[in-house]
Design a protein around this nucleic acid. Structure first.
Lengths: 120, 120
DNA sequence: ACACGATACTGTGTCACACACACTGTTGTC
DNA sequence: GACAACAGTGTGTGTGACACAGTATCGTGT
């Protein structure tokens, strides 16, 4: 009944931002892009590789992640880890997340009891 | 310490999608744009008018909201209400929201107990 | 009487992010 | 020696958030 493309679009809009939280949280223990991709996939957060790689570069440029090339092994990997600023932002975003959850819940219950709108 | 613009950007990314849920939930009882704006503001969901109006039109075009002009009063208002498809989508998005919350929590606790990663 | 802010909405930009597509190169494995 | 999985970069394209600029009506003060 619902157009699949419309549904997918809105679901994706909802996911936006959460990937940043997931990355910042996961990379408190250092890791690299491709590996992170697998971890997120396993955790039920499906992220496209073409989305994650640019995201990591952006977070690095913003100073939220620290990055350096690991060339100790033959296959070079770009290792990322969450910086102090990143940890800081993660906290803020989690607070915002909880705030949003609270607000949505409030609207939801107000909806099932519309008469509450009349109260002071 | 954190760049304010960067912070604001990520917070906004997180809010994306939640406004759709808020609108669909609130408009189960019919309402109009400017009024919805006030309701959301009061609920702690700050949405720009220039964001909400186009959003409502888009949701209407997607068949998630039903709209009709109310011209009974001198000041014309475009009344919106959530359609069956909209109610349907709202349920899906709420499920997705809970799914995301669960995944993020999982990543967070895995993070504080990294050794769990080794377990089968 | 009229200036001004609040109400209520439309339309046209601009910019950033998600993702598609197209690459480069390495390491197993069959 | 072909081929999939690994690990990453770069270059589009489209959509949504918001800035800015309008249109028009209503209420209140002076």
């Amino acid at each position: 009944m619902i157009d699949d493309e419309v549904l997918a679009g809105h679901q994706q809009e909802l996911r936006r931002g959460t990937v940043v939280m997931a990355a910042l949280a996961t990379l408190e223990t250092p890791g690299y892009g491709y590996g992170l991709l697998a971890v997120l996939e396993k955790s039920g957060l499906s992220v496209d590789a073409n989305t994650l790689y640019p995201l990591l570069r952006r977070l690095e440029k913003q100073g939220l992640l620290a990055a350096e090339w690991d060339t100790t092994e033959s296959r070079p990997r770009k290792m990322y880890k969450t910086s102090d600023a990143g940890r800081n932002l993660l906290g803020t975003l989690e607070a915002e997340w909880n705030h949003l959850a609270t607000s949505l819940n409030a609207l939801r219950s107000e909806e099932s009891n519309p008469h509450l709108k009349e109260l002071p």
